[in-house]
Nucleic acid binder design. Structure first.
Lengths: 401, 401
DNA sequence: GCATTTAATTCGTGGCCCGAACTTTATGTG
DNA sequence: CACATAAAGTTCGGGCCACGAATTAAATGC
């Protein structure tokens, strides 16, 4: 007899339709609030009766509340629905030098925010984060806390969530998730920083209909978050996105990763500083912020360094354009404050690098605190489902007729 | 008043669950045939009653037929279900030198196959293909023809399907789909050759559970098909996958695309021939097949050329590994007949190139005729839906709880 | 005061999955 | 050979769900 694999395939039950439509409506309310039930029906294509039932359920669950009534030229006034702001999300952004802990509502608005230097020891870091989180919970006791979202510059094992790679951080092999879950009593979600930026754009940015996008984070190194088919691509072991460590020139300068000529060797903040030092002969270490302010004061060596960095950034992006054909490339990092200097160089490099078809739009990240906002989305994903309607469309159309 | 966008979001209806489960069962039958209703229920997790209803429907639609009864130690004998082989799919693989037209059943088994030289003119090519397709339809009049699947070395506009880029072919700006649909009266689906190879692996290969895979096609140039999260990634304008035209060395030899040092300049069949000519000094043009047979006859220059090509292939694959973190890389092309020579060099380059985590498995494509098989899948996708259960899982879990 | 208009709810219908009961068909066993 | 046992497959009642028509609610204008 043949052997069969009994790990069940995912099938649909009677409630599947409700789950999908609930998710669709919840996301529409989030995006278009305040919005009436009638408009929800029109926008979604669902029947008004169905919309009423589902919104009633959402109000029962206190995700949504009835707002004020609207005003129309004729007819009964609509009741506007909006998200219940008393649902709160705790987030933390771990960076090599500094950790930021914040409290946000379901709309990604921040209510409070604290920062402190990053401890070198993972356990001490976890301790400090959870202490701040509990402070926030205590001082906002009226809120309902939905969970904790963490962004960090590293990778972790997808199942156990143990941190397995964070070169700039030194928190190797630590189970941050479990540690925080025990100390806060809340669900904890973790995500790589570049991926968090993708979520921030998709959830809180204006690029609602974008299905294919790449985020490039520029700081000490270069990271990337890959968003294709309306979904975040994490790769086989959550490791996708390390385009920063692709070698552009086998004979280039050595990289921290051990190889030579990696993209980030040419295009990271560190590269900018190196270019400046080379040109200037000045061996005094300055910060990247200082480099940018010198460029703003017309320091030609600083300007030259930033421009060289921008061109390198564009050169590496060609790889993303050729390989992934995104509709948009979003740049995250301090360097975006120099956008007017950056942008023409990037588009020049990219225009040249594009084989055919439209070159992608290239733009800086929307708003500040992409990583923190992305962490908010990370937590909400559990309840709201996929934020991009297009992704849900692909999902529903499993049977593609 | 605010403006609302009334292009409906995709929502679920009462029939959505049935559509999903129908697709799940149809794919399970395809994969595990012959299989009883009872086993289908166990494997899928659906109730036996539900399975009976859906399979009855599939039998009515004549996608599935009742096979022989099985034999068990005790109890009523199971009735085995299998796909109805009288459903046929027509396929064509367009290559720069030769076009292959074939007839396959739903299991991807080929019943007949003809090849002819590729006409330089697109219209003439379409004419010839449709003539062969109609021959096949006439000589197999008992079969039910489901559609036509085409693979080609180029890109087309995702909506209109007009060919917009096919450098090795010269069929620019031609609407092959419409042309063939009119002459055959069947639905016609087109796909880039590398993407077709992905479909072949996913549908007919043994890598059922792979969610993240990259196919690298090696012939005149280098192409790639990107399979992530259990889905084929086509990019914003269907252009994703041109990793072959990423420059590995800005000072390298010129590429047909106009830039320098592209991956395919180093790793395509053409590169192998160039390496051979350089080493050998022999200016006589030989075919790649000839190069390989000389290597088999211990021609050291030929061996050297193939090894250099293999190393270049591996070097470029590092980009795929770092950026996409696939679980598997599949190589398609004539060069796979030299696998024992290739494989150690590829794994060596990749082992070196992997930052962390497991390096991907790397293997030649399963079976012959990947492109044609992929075209069969292309047509079946419409009826069967997503072939990978994992993709359906992501789909159903739109509300991710 | 009443027609008109729009929002929102109510309610009957049909699709669908679930799960229990039942039928069918096989293999032993006393 | 009747009967227990076992497994496959079917039938049927119940509950969930979306649909759509009818109804109710609430506003405007003549």
């Amino acid at each position: 007899m043949r052997r069969l694999d009994f790990t069940n395939t995912q099938v649909a039950s009677s409630e599947t339709a409700r789950d999908i439509n609930r998710s669709v409506l919840l996301n529409l309310i989030r995006r278009k609030q305040p919005i009436s039930r009638a408009d929800l029906a029109r926008v979604s294509g669902l029947q008004r009766s169905t919309v009423s039932l589902i919104t009633e359920q959402l109000i029962d669950e206190s995700w949504v509340i009835n707002g004020p009534t609207g005003r129309l030229p004729r007819g009964r006034r609509p009741t506007f629905l909006r998200l219940n702001e008393n649902r709160a999300i705790l987030v933390a952004d771990i960076r090599p030098a500094q950790i930021t802990v914040a409290l946000a509502d379901v709309n990604g608005q921040f209510l409070e925010q604290v920062a402190f230097p990053t401890p070198s020891d993972a356990a001490a870091g976890a301790q400090k984060i959870s202490s701040r989180l509990r402070d926030l919970m205590r001082s906002h006791s009226k809120l309902v806390f939905e969970g904790v979202g963490i962004s960090l510059p590293g990778r972790f094992e997808p199942v156990s969530k143990r941190i397995i790679f964070a070169p700039n951080l030194k928190w190797r092999d630590f189970d941050l998730k479990r540690s925080l879950e025990r100390s806060t009593g809340l669900r904890v979600e973790m995500e790589n920083a570049a991926n968090a930026c993708v979520l921030a754009e998709v959830w809180f940015g204006h690029a609602e209909k974008i299905r294919d996008m790449v985020v490039v984070t520029v700081s000490e190194g270069i990271g990337s978050g890959i968003f294709l088919n309306g979904q975040l691509m994490r790769g086989a072991h959550g490791m996708a996105g390390e385009f920063g460590h692709v070698s552009l020139d086998p004979a280039g300068p050595p990289c921290t990763c051990g190889r030579r000529g990696c993209w980030e060797v040419y295009a990271s903040n560190r590269a900018g500083l190196r270019y400046y030092a080379e040109k200037n002969g000045d061996s005094n270490a300055i910060s990247f912020q200082e480099l940018m302010s010198r460029a703003n004061s017309s320091d030609s060596a600083a300007i030259h360094a930033l421009e060289k960095m921008a061109r390198a950034l564009g050169r590496g992006m060609r790889m993303l354009v050729a390989g992934l054909a995104p509709e948009e490339i979003v740049v995250v990092g301090e360097v975006t404050s120099q956008w007017s200097r950056l942008e023409p160089l990037l588009t020049a490099e990219l225009g040249e690098g594009v084989l055919f078809g439209k070159p992608p739009r290239i733009r800086p990240a929307e708003g500040i605190m992409a990583r923190l906002r992305g962490s908010v989305a990370l937590v909400l994903q559990g309840e709201f489902g996929v934020a991009v309607p297009e992704a849900a469309k692909a999902a529903v159309a499993v049977n593609g007729r």
